[in-house]
Design a protein around this nucleic acid. Sequence first.
RNA 1: CGCGGGGUAGAGCAGCCUGGUAGCUCGUUAGGCUCAUAACCUAAAGGUCGUCCGUUCAAAUCGGACCCCCGCAA
Length: 312
Amino acid sequence: MNIVFFGSGGFALKSLEALVTGAHKVNLVVTQPDKPKGRHLALSSTEVKSKAEALGLKIIQPQNPNSQEAINALKEIPADLYVVISYGHFLKEPLLRLPKLYPLNVHASLLPKYRGAAPINWAIINGERETGVSIIRMVEAMDAGDILLEKKIPIDDNDTAVTLEEKLSTLAAGALTRAIQLIEKKAEKFIKQDTSAVSFAPKLEKRHGEINWSNGAAEISRQIKGLTTWPGAYTYYKGKLLKLWSAEARKENSKNPGEILEAGAGRLIIGTARGSLEIVELQLEGGRRLSAAAFLSGHNLAPGNKFDKAVS
RNA sequence: CGCGGGGUAGAGCAGCCUGGUAGCUCGUUAGGCUCAUAACCUAAAGGUCGUCCGUUCAAAUCGGACCCCCGCAA
């Protein structure tokens, strides 16, 4: 099959590899332009671009893939299928009609649930027990196309956004390979999405990471796991940003959400509205990521202090 | 040159502003206490204070350059 691959994020890497090793001709990789990133705002390329370079594939990075200019370039490239994974730009009608067969999208949820930019994170935050990947035929509406294939996977208690993305990206590569086999045999069947079951997984923003200690310990724990590595769940200590990387919900209750219940012998326990939270790994602004024990040996935290914006 | 914090014993930190014996918590080792212990008590070991240059009688501390780590922002 002649394929044009649209992708940017790390979730797409395994699928791209699978296409290349699967004897398909990836005639072009479309990825987001290099952007200033990190400290000192150095330009950095997308993960897909780096991988595509390593694979020796042709790459374009249009500012707007729907522009006439981009479309003209794409018309030159033979394509039976477009494969779109974690690309990061909405694709519109004229572009979607370019491939001989159709544009496929690989999405990291069981559609119609969790349409949108951050399905993996929101599935964890909301405490879903299972999720999966969906391969759909793209239409001009966000993640709304007919479903060709879905694969399920359980969400483990220990899963974070990072571990789950890893699992799902592997699952996605397999599902994509299978979907293309079906298409080659002209055996593909599409199922319409149940519009009554639609839910959304909006793009993550920094503010989603701020911990509200008036939530329950279990919720906060899921927030921490669902938001690694970005934006991460955070609170404040002595006016500085304090990221919580890993924590476990405990049963002991506290009258004062955000209050330090225990800080010693390697244990750091914070009260929440329902239950308490034992912090396992944390990171203070400017510092590196530390175990609770290491953090405590250098910071004199006393029970009764609170983790919050204004307090010391 | 986007903004900012930091590099001091194995770990995490204080000391730096106001130069002049290197300190805290934990860990390690030895001894003690105990029916016993990762608990408690006592003692010890362990540091070119990121690197180089400069100022000074004297630099972890002041000035400069460079290296490395990190938060924000994007």
